[in-house]
Design a protein around this nucleic acid. Structure first.
Lengths: 214, 214
DNA sequence: AATAATTAGTACAAAGATGCTACTAACCAA
DNA sequence: TTGGTTAGTAGCATCTTTGTACTAATTATT
């Protein structure tokens, strides 16, 4: 028989890794904690799961409370369950990751304790993070970078209309290597279509604007 | 601030998808429930998470209780949190998947309510499963098949010493397509080494035995 | 003892993807 | 008008994948 009988209740948290690419850098949204434990340390935006909401709804709520964003790309990442990951009591945290174009985060940056921080700096570990959130970010970045080549997640980091050099830079940042223009275009062209518009004002030849196809 | 404060406690279950490949078929371990809810229906082996154990420890316990197996391949799959997935009370289930060579499951099959069932039959949906376990299996099979090509999981389904045709069949079953011998061998050869032994008694040319390298 | 059946394993050509170089195109700045 | 800069394309070389065809080694059959 399957023993799903609830013998012991445990707190369930939802933490969200909100990633974006800005200034050719992968960045993540962190918030400064203003209560114990880990007061004044940075942490991922998170909420306690309510009885009346699904995991995904809680993740959306967590994103919305901190950034005001709705309907952004959101996927479950991993569930962390180390016994003492929360010093208060046993808490399992279901981590999600969200991806967004940085323009949608402009209003958010520096608004009451919310920061957009380069992931490399966070992982370099100059300043500590609350809970096991550094571990989460480390895991999340690996998953993100691993998925770039075979999924369309890179599109989530650019606006609806984008240029191919822009999109290529996102791929390069996530993959951590330089790509050849010609090959990149051959690979990506079945997935995009021209909008007919151009991006001008760039002190060099203007580039065509594209949108995602399908 | 991050609201990880535990306002409401929720039951946490661990369910495990124990996959194997037998008779050229992907199969999964199911157990017959002998209590409500879903009495007499098949379900995944599962346990309630205890305060004193990690998620992975609970998954190992779940595998061990049903099959007696220890130290088998185990990875977290996904966390399911639909509001009414358990009719008794709000329960979040962290699903894991385990992979094993079918020989290790021989003693288990048909022992007190434990069955080894073809995944295709389960998903075809002739008989209902407890909870959202069919959904879990559907998700798990997709993930498993998606990972075959870029990870070494296929090795988990064969004994320590195996022939390349054997391993190739595992790949073919999971990928759902026929592979070319020559290409398969080129792809797999950096990952394996000959043991020096041969598998004879097969009414045709004997095959070399290999083991996983590294 | 020969031969048929069957699967193991290898060789190699064809097609396609990727790596890489070099060029032309179109804008802004001076 | 010239130079700087990035957009975009052409095309060859190389590596990888696709696919076919062959030889090899065993057991089963006559």
């Amino acid at each position: 028989m399957t023993d799903n009988t609830p013998h012991q209740k445990i707190s369930v948290a939802i933490d969200v890794l909100i990633f974006t690419v800005e200034d050719d850098t992968l960045k993540i949204v962190l918030v400064k904690r203003n209560e114990k434990p880990f007061k004044d340390l940075y942490a991922l935006p998170g909420v306690a799961l309510r009885e009346s909401e699904t995991l995904e709804e809680a993740a959306e709520r967590s994103v919305g409370e901190r950034t005001g964003l709705k309907n952004i790309f959101l996927e479950q990442l991993y569930t962390f369950g180390a016994i003492d990951r929360d010093p208060r009591n046993r808490t399992v945290s279901v981590a999600y990751y969200a991806l967004t174009d940085p323009e949608k985060l402009i209003a958010v940056h520096n608004a009451d304790g919310v920061s957009l921080v380069p992931v490399n700096e966070v992982l370099a570990g100059i300043s500590p993070l609350a809970f096991d959130h550094r571990e989460m970010i480390d895991y999340g970045r690996k998953r993100l970078c691993g998925k770039v080549s075979y999924s369309g997640i890179a599109f989530e980091f650019v606006p609806e209309e984008f240029t191919l050099p822009q999109l290529q830079r996102v791929y390069e940042i996530l993959l951590g290597e330089k790509l050849y223009k010609a090959n990149f275009r051959k690979m990506i062209s079945p997935l995009v279509e021209e909008t007919g518009n151009m991006l001008t004002g760039q002190a060099h030849r203007p580039s065509k604007l594209y949108r995602r196809k399908g």
